[in-house]
Amino acid sequence: MNNFDYLQPQSVSEAVDQAGTNDSNRFIAGGTNLLDLWKYDLLHPAALIDINQLPALNSITETAEGGLRLGALCTNAATAYHPLVEERYPLLSKAILAGASAQIRNMATNGGNLLQRTRCYYFYDPAVPCNKRNPGSGCPAIGGYNRMHAILGASDQCIAVFPSDMCVALAALNAVVLVTGQQGDRSIPFADFHRLPGDQPALDNTLLPGELITAIDLPPNRFATNYSYLKLRDRHSYAFALVSVATALDLDGDTIREARIALGGVAHKPWRNELAEQFLQGKAAIEANFAAAADILLQGAQGYQHNGFKIPLAKKAIIRNSLMALDPASQLPGAQPSA
C-alpha cells in the first residue's frame, strides 16, 4: 500500500533498462496478483513498470516448427479463446478457463499467470511467520491448517503450492518460456521455470531479477484430440484447486503412443513425472494402466494433518481425467468431473 513510481516504457529494451536488477522494480501487466499483494502489504514496489503499451508482447503467432508463440501480454481470455489455441492446444484453453473468473481472465496475462504467488494463508498474513515471505521466520502451515498445501516436493521450510491452472497445462505441453533481460535472451523449458522450495522457499522460479517474460512457446504436438483438464475444489467455480490434473494423450487406436499428465494444487510447481508417462507408452488406454501411472506419479507423496486426502484424491482424479481425455466431450464447464 506504499507509494511507487509509475513508468511507461515504450519498448522492451526500455522496460528492461528501467527494471535494472532491482527486485523492487516490478513489471505490471494485468495487475491482478501484483495489486492484490500490494494491498495486503506483502509487496512494496519502488516502481511499477507498466508493460501494457508494448505491442511486441501482445500477439499470438505461429512458429516455424508449427507450434504457437503466445505473447506474454496476451490476456488469459484472449489466449483461451484464440482459434489456433482452441484448435491445436485445447487442453490449454480448458485449463485457463478453469482458473479465476471471466473478469480476471480478461485482465490476467500469460506472463503474470506464470508469476502469481501462492495462496497459502500464512504467506498472505504479514503478521505471522513465513519462510517464503520472510526467510528464516518459520512455516506455521506445517503444524497449522494445511488443507490446501503440498503433498509432493515440499521441504521442511515450506509446503506452499503454486496455484496456477494455466501452468499445469503448459507443463504438460512442454512449453518454453522466453525471457529477456540485461544479460540477454534466454529460453527456459517449462519444467525448469518453477522450482521446488528446498531451503530457498522465497524463490518461486528461476527468473532473474529484472528479467522480462516476452512469450511462451508451445511446440507442435498430437494432443488436440484426447485431452482433459479436471479441477477439484471447495465450490464449483472461482476457487483455487485442491487438486487439478491436465492429461494429454496421443493414441494409436486403443494404444497410447504418448501421454502427458501434470498435477496442480499438489506442489510448489506443476507436478510431472516422466516415469509415469513412459510407463503408459505403448500400453492400452484402460483404467488399470492409468491407475498404475497415477501410483508412479504420486510416489513419495506425503500428507500433513489436513491434506492427506489429496493423495487418494489425486489418484482418483488422474484416473477419471484420463478417461475424460478419451472422451473430451464429457468435459464440463468449470472443469468439473464428468456427469
Binding site: 464449483h236 472461482y238 468449470g334
Partner: peptide, 8 residues
C-alpha cells in the same frame, strides 16, 4: 471464505 457461486 467460500460462499456459493452461481455454478453451485
Amino acid at each position: 471464505y467460500h460462499i456459493p457461486v452461481h455454478a453451485d
